[in-house]
Design a protein around this nucleic acid. Structure first.
Length: 461
RNA sequence: GGCGUCGUACCCAAGCGGUCUAAGGGAUCGGUUUGCAAAACCGCUAUUCGUCGGUUCGAAUCCGACCGACGCCUCCA
């Protein structure tokens, strides 16, 4: 089956072909560790996870790198404010990123290289660009010479930038669109600086990613991912450096996920309209947040609302009920799917540029069909097997079934006792007392679902 | 200002030239079931896809204009 991905460089869906037969190299722009991550950041990180899981479903082994940017203006600003030290600050938010990733069932990447561990390599990279005359030095700042690189403008209409040429930023760049590879030391940088042959300073963002990507994955990678806002200038600049220096195609596929919108604007720290992911995880389950994020296509904007989160939560309830009624006892997916008609359609949707909303629709359609059989009491062994396989295949991508769903929670003795009494009242047709007990049990956090012969206790959400 | 993406029911969201009198989820209202509920099931809720034109045998899907939202061009997932 062919996997199609929308490539930002061509603005169309393309059949995916990896460089090596069964292995995919994937570079994802990770967090700058200066502050608590927000939902918008994690929309992108969950998107990376989606890409990876779909690749795995297609039989690829994925070598994924997510970088950690720990050299950056905002980090320096924060350290300068005196509240916290450099190491402490970056470690704190690095850990937070990893922890939330774990909470959201995001598969671990193979590597999380940190900028500060690779400054030597960045210096070497910049030096090589200078040697090839793609970069020049102005008072210790090194800039990339966009005039020298004819292919500049992969992601943006270059005339736009030319128009802005008049607004020179006073750094002595030859062209407005030239960008920094190395920033010379300034007093406010303090100790956050490295020695180089051009004097003290630090690598600039675009160079950081260019070096980390090529160093960990080679001169041409299969897939490069990021949020749309990184298309230009970040990815443009990253790509320009690598392709100029190595004379290669930097990445065969560029995937960009859309923004999360809050209060009519993209969620962003500089705009101040932030929903901290940690806070959100206290309010909603990780599964709910994941589903909320995956129920829109990755290239569509998501307008945040609590209502959507609660819709997602209800969807999960429905899925969980189905999981229980089919008697699933493990979430381990061994890849054995034996694609039936519906499951095949599910996989095809995901392979069509990661169409998660459509795939979800197919899954629900399937659930409805089986529920109907359950209702008619005509669910066969084959139906059960098929359902289990579909659920596992579904969950291997969406990851929204919590393991606890498989285990019937122990009902507290007190609740059991009340339920037993209620059972007696029902037998005696003492409905008033039975209803009163049902209410009491509900207050204790348990719902009763009566069936003909017995009553079932379900944990209240 | 330039460039780009998007506008589908009460809400969310797929579909992107014919199988669309438009999937799926939430919500509402009927019905089956139930002592009553809950859960489940059945049914109703867009002859219509921002507006107006055009292309076509045929358009939600292509083209143009307009209106509206968002993004990029500056740090940003």
């Amino acid at each position: 089956m062919i996997l199609k991905l929308y490539n930002s460089t061509t603005s169309q869906k393309e059949d995916f072909k990896s460089i090596s037969p069964n292995i995919v190299s994937m570079y994802c722009c990770g967090p700058t560790v200066y502050d608590a991550p927000h939902l918008g950041n994690f929309r992108t990180f969950v998107f990376y996870d989606l890409v990876k899981r779909v690749l795995i479903q297609n039989g690829f082994e994925v070598n994924q790198v997510i970088n950690i940017t720990d050299i950056d203006d905002k980090i320096i600003d924060k350290v300068n404010s005196g509240a916290i030290g450099y190491k402490e600050l970056t470690a704190k938010f690095n850990d937070m990123f990893l922890q939330h990733s774990l909470s959201l069932n995001i598969q671990e990447a193979n590597q999380y290289p940190k900028t500060s561990d690779h400054v030597e390599a960045m210096i070497g990279f910049i030096k090589a660009l200078i040697d090839k005359e793609y970069a020049y030095n102005v008072d210790g700042n090194i800039f990339f010479d966009t005039e020298k690189y004819s292919k500049y403008g992969k992601f943006v209409n270059i005339e736009n930038i030319d128009r802005l040429e008049s607004e020179d930023d006073g750094l002595g760049k030859k062209n407005q669109k030239d960008f920094a590879l190395w920033k010379t030391w300034k007093e406010e940088d303090g100790d956050i600086t490295w020695e180089s042959e051009w004097g003290k300073g630090r690598p600039a963002w675009h160079t950081e990613c260019a070096v980390l990507a090529t160093q960990s994955l080679g001169k041409t990678i299969d897939i490069h991912c990021g949020g749309v806002d990184l298309k230009f200038p970040h990815h443009e600049n990253e790509s320009a450096q690598v392709e100029a220096l190595l004379d290669s195609v930097f990445s065969n596929y560029w995937l960009h996920s859309e923004h999360l919108i809050l209060e009519e604007e993209k969620m962003s720290k500089s705009l101040g309209n932030i929903l901290n992911i940690g806070d959100l995880l206290n309010q909603y389950s990780a599964e709910t947040i994941r589903l909320f994020l995956l129920s829109s296509h990755y290239r569509s904007k998501i307008y945040f609302s609590d209502e959507k989160l609660s819709d997602s939560s209800k969807m999960i309830d429905k899925i969980n009920r189905f999981v229980k009624s089919v008697g699933l006892d493990t979430l381990d997916h061994n890849g054995d799917t034996n694609p039936s008609g519906d499951y095949l359609r599910f996989v095809e949707s995901l392979n069509d540029d990661l169409n998660t909303p459509e795939a979800l629709g197919i899954f629900f359609d399937f659930i409805n069909k089986k529920n109907k059989k359950i209702h008619e009491d005509s669910l066969s062994e084959e139906d059960i097997e098929e359902s289990k396989k579909f659920i596992l295949g579904f969950n291997s991508i969406f990851q929204i079934i919590h393991p606890s769903v498989l285990i019937d929670e122990e009902v507290p003795e007190e609740v059991q006792k009340l339920a037993f009494i209620r059972e007696g009242m029902r037998d005696k047709k003492n409905w008033e007392e039975a209803d009163r007990l049902r209410e009491e049990i509900e207050k204790m956090g348990w719902l009763i679902e009566d069936s003909e012969s017995s009553q079932k206790l379900v944990r209240k959400k």
